[in-house]
């Protein structure tokens, strides 16, 4: 995953400019999704703990957090699949608790698990879903061709879905989830288990949806994907611990500096540092260390490591990645 980081940085800048341009179009008045103090408990376990969010129309809203943080539970409540235990919310202006059936007509949902019929052909899957989504007869053919084209599998329409490669399956799943052209899309970890190239292509698709005016609510546990989003919320143990644009998160939540350390024996160095009370995280062949200030931090680290005979080859201050931000925020909370 880390290896991808470098690649993504390029595409991020490319995207970021488009997003800034578009962000200006969005006005505060049109809200696509709004939740207030939403809670969900399973027995004694609190899966989602009083979260509040506002998502604007046309926005790509990223919901980030480790597995089990409450991402899927939130998304399932928003789609009308699960009743909240407390709090309130609206999706497209419809009340979650009172009108889950209405919500189902205006949202597209792609679940974490691949959820098309493996034993149907590509075309049979599309026909089935356009049937149950009430796509009007005269539009069915057009929508089918659109999905086949979007997923790049027009020549495989007769193949069994189980025979498709992961990336194609996932695009087909997205296509089937939006056959009825819903204005709001919920994607639950759409890129998990898909190869890096397909992941990137998939994010381009999401961006296209957003360009077309759809609101996209997407969860992921890949931190490097966060930069594709207009705004983000970090969720941890059922609570939102930070919210903002990617750049706000980097700068406002990250008051401290991040140093990237180049040493020979990474794991050993991490042990040595933790003994002297300095927390470090391994990033590929380097260590990332969050410090109060660059200069004093650098001195402390170098001293501690050289006392144990580990040579410091380089120590640079870097722009924190969202992963750094996340790790720091988790430590704080």
């Amino acid at each position: 995953m880390k290896k991808q980081d470098g690649n993504n940085v390029g595409s991020v800048t490319h995207h970021a400019s488009r997003f800034t341009h578009r962000a200006s179009r969005i006005t505060g008045s049109d809200i696509a999704v709004k939740i207030e103090n939403m809670r969900r408990t399973f027995g004694a376990f609190v899966a989602v703990d009083n979260i509040s969010l506002e998502i604007k129309k046309g926005e790509i809203f990223g919901f980030l957090g480790p597995n089990g943080a409450g991402k899927s539970t939130t998304i399932r409540m928003l789609c009308g699949l699960l009743m909240p235990s407390g709090g309130s919310g609206t999706v497209g202006g419809l009340d979650i608790a009172k009108n889950p059936e209405g919500i189902k007509r205006i949202v597209g949902y792609m679940s974490q698990r691949f959820s098309l019929y493996d034993d149907l052909t590509v075309e049979e899957n599309i026909n089935f879903f356009s049937g149950v989504y009430n796509v009007p007869k005269e539009k069915k053919l057009e929508r089918k061709e659109w999905v086949l084209d979007m997923a790049g599998i027009a020549d495989r329409r007769g193949s069994l879905t189980r025979d498709l490669a992961g990336g194609f399956k996932q695009r087909l799943a997205l296509g089937c989830a939006i056959l009825h052209e819903p204005p709001i899309l919920f994607l639950d970890e759409p890129t998990s288990g898909v190869d890096p190239v397909s992941r990137r292509n998939f994010w381009h698709l999401i961006d296209d949806m957003s360009q077309a005016g759809r609101t996209v609510f997407v969860t992921t546990h890949y931190m490097d994907e966060a930069d594709y989003c207009d705004r983000l919320a970090l969720i941890y143990r059922g609570r939102i611990i930070a919210e903002g644009t990617p750049s706000e998160l980097r700068h406002e939540y990250m008051k401290r500096d991040v140093l990237e350390l180049e040493v020979d024996r990474v794991v050993e160095a991490m042990d040595v540092l933790s003994k002297s009370g300095i927390d470090a995280a391994i990033f590929g062949s380097t260590l990332h260390i969050t410090v109060e200030s660059e200069s004093t931090g650098r001195q402390q680290i170098t001293a501690a490591l050289e006392a144990s005979g580990i040579k410091v080859k380089g120590c640079e201050k870097i722009v924190p990645s969202l992963e750094d931000v996340f790790v720091t925020l988790i430590e704080v909370s």
Partner: peptide
């Protein structure tokens, strides 16, 4: 078991 039920449940199917 396969997870397709969840996908059906978000469609307007009652």
């Amino acid at each position: 078991e396969l997870g397709t039920m969840e996908q059906i449940m978000v469609t307007p199917i009652r």
